[in-house]
C-alpha cells in the first residue's frame, strides 16, 4: 500500500508573543522555532501504522522553502521512504487553492492508495488543502478523521462532526483523509533511522518542472491584525443551586459538553 503524506513546516506560535511584521500580511518569525505542523505529525504516524500493516512506501511532500527539508528529514526518520520538496521560493504569495493545485500537479503522477494530510495547519488555519486537493484529484475524501483502518481497497473511518457527533464511513480507495490530532501516538525516531534519514536524497521540484505554470487564486490576503480585546461578563444571580443550573444551561447551549 503506497501512501502520500502532505506536511508543512510551521512556526510554533503557541508559546510565543505573535507580532505582525512590517508588510502587515505576515508575522515576525525571526525568534520563533519551527516544527512539523501538529496534525501532520499524526497524519505521518497513521501512514507509518498502515505501512507496518500492509508494507508499501510512504512519500512525504512539502511545498516549502529550503528549511522545509529539515522537516522532511524528520518525516524520513519517522517512517517515510521518499521525500519531495516543491520549491516555495519559486512562487509569490499562495492561497490555499493555489497550494492545492500545485500539490495536485505533482501528486497526479505518483502512485498512491491513500493520501493523508493534517486536518488544519496551525499557522494559516485554512483547513482547505486536503479536501481541495482530493476534489482536484477527483478521489473520495473524509475530513477530521479520528479513527482509521483499511484493507487493500477500502477504508473504515470515523470522523468528527459538530456537537460531539461521529460519522462512520466506508470509503473506496484511493482516497484522501485529513487527520485530527489525538488519533494515535506519534513515534520517536531511532538514532539508526535518524542517521539513515540524514543521508537520504530529497527530491526538489521547481516551478518550471511542473506540468502547468498558472495556478488560479481565489482569495487575497488583505491584512493581518491582532483582534481587538473585548470583555463580556455575565453575573449569574440567585442561590448556589439556581446559579449552578443557569451555568449548566449556558454550557449546554454553547455545546461545550
Amino acid at each position: 500500500m503506497d501512501i502520500i503524506v502532505c506536511i508543512k513546516r510551521v512556526p510554533q506560535t503557541a508559546e510565543a508573543e505573535v507580532k505582525i511584521d512590517s508588510t502587515g500580511k505576515d508575522i515576525e518569525k525571526d525568534r520563533l522555532t519551527f516544527d512539523m505542523n501538529e496534525s501532520d505529525t499524526y497524519a505521518l504516524e497513521e501512514a507509518a501504522l498502515m505501512k507496518e500493516k500492509f508494507g508499501g512506501e510512504i512519500t512525504v511532500i512539502s511545498l516549502g522553502d529550503e528549511d522545509a527539508e529539515e522537516t522532511l528529514r524528520i518525516a524520513l526518520a519517522k517512517g517515510a521512504d521518499n521525500a519531495i520538496r516543491i520549491k516555495a521560493e519559486d512562487f509569490d504569495e499562495l492561497d490555499a487553492f493555489q497550494t492545492s493545485q500545485i500539490l495536485k500537479s505533482v501528486i497526479k503522477d505518483l502512485s498512491y492508495d491513500i493520501i493523508f494530510t493534517g486536518c488544519i495547519s496551525t499557522d494559516d488555519a485554512y483547513s482547505q488543502i486536503g479536501l481541495t486537493l482530493a476534489e482536484l484529484l477527483e478521489i473520495p475524501h473524509a475530513a477530521l478523521v479520528i479513527d482509521f483502518d483499511a484493507n487493500e481497497d477500502r477504508a473504515d473511518v470515523q470522523r468528527e462532526l459538530e456537537g460531539g457527533l461521529i460519522e462512520h464511513l466506508d470509503v473506496a480507495l484511493p482516497a484522501l483523509f485529513t487527520i485530527q490530532t489525538g488519533i494515535n501516538e506519534p513515534r520517536y525516531a531511532s538514532l539508526i533511522a535518524i542517521r539513515r534519514a540524514a543521508k537520504k536524497e530529497i527530491q526538489v521540484i521547481g516551478k518550471d518542472e511542473l506540468a502547468q505554470s498558472e495556478f488560479i487564486s481565489n482569495s487575497t490576503l488583505e491584512k493581518l491584525y491582532v483582534p481587538p480585546i473585548s470583555k463580556q461578563v455575565e453575573i449569574l444571580d440567585g442561590t448556589a443551586a439556581e446559579s449552578s443550573a443557569k451555568l449548566a444551561g449556558i454550557i449546554k447551549d454553547k455545546g461545550l459538553l
Partner: peptide
C-alpha cells in the same frame, strides 16, 4: 535535532527561544 524527545521539553525549548 529530529524532534524525538519529550513534548514537555520541546515546549520548554520553544518558550526559551521564543520569549
Amino acid at each position: 535535532d529530529f524532534g524525538s524527545y519529550p513534548e514537555t521539553l520541546k515546549s520548554t525549548a520553544q518558550k526559551i527561544k521564543n520569549v
